[in-house]
């Protein structure tokens, strides 16, 4: 085999350890360089995360409005009856669904209007686990046949009943 006669000093740069060491060094330097390049700018500013992300979350799109005030500025016809009844503590969107787009675009984005027995029953039907100290409950199966709730009750103030029924 080659060189077998001379086990004199091999040039340092020809030694296996040196060659492989150089490869490792190059890989390490490349890695550290890439690492610096790819880490996002705001990473680590306030903790081990990209702090710009906090701002991004605050910009998430809204679906629900801030509360009922905006609704009641336009819908003044509902305002008085709503604020005088037991549904006064509800937000409009609890029953009408998310409506943040409605004020700016009242024709295209319409909140839902539901008055079915099932819809009202989702809160008012008697149910195991539902505390009767918190909410008025009826049994949909026996209460007033198949009439729609809004036939008798003013939904914005359910204590007020149409047709003088009680």
């Amino acid at each position: 085999m080659k060189n077998s006669d001379s086990d004199q000093k091999v040039k340092l740069t020809d030694q296996p350890l040196f060659r492989i060491g150089m490869i490792i060094a190059i890989v390490l330097v490349l890695f550290i360089g890439l690492q610096q390049w790819f880490i996002p700018k705001s990473f680590g500013k306030t903790g081990h995360y990209r702090s710009d992300n906090i701002q991004e979350w605050t910009e998430h799109e809204l679906q629900y409005a801030a509360g009922s005030d905006a609704c009641l500025t336009c819908h003044s016809n509902v305002k008085n009856i709503f604020l005088s009844g037991s549904h006064e503590q509800l937000n409009c969107e609890t029953c009408h669904g998310p409506a943040v787009k409605h004020p700016n675009n009242p024709m295209d984005s319409k909140p839902s209007i539901e008055s079915s027995r099932e819809f009202c029953g989702s809160c008012h039907q008697t149910l195991t686990g539902r505390p009767d100290t918190v909410i008025t409950q009826i049994d949909l199966g026996t209460h007033m046949g198949f009439a729609n709730c809004s036939d008798c009750h003013q939904p914005h103030n359910p204590g007020f009943k149409f047709g003088g029924a009680d």
């Binding site: 906090i54 979350w57 605050t58 998430h60 629900y64 503590q89 509800l90 609890t94 918190v134 909410i135």
Partner: peptide, 23 residues
């Protein structure tokens, strides 16, 4: 759940709190 971070950071309450009819 983010506690509606986009809402609470604007001074609003969370969507679930707002939708709850009984507080």
């Amino acid at each position: 759940c983010t506690w509606c971070y986009h809402r609470i950071s604007k001074g609003m309450t969370t969507a679930c709190v707002q939708a709850c009819p009984v507080g």
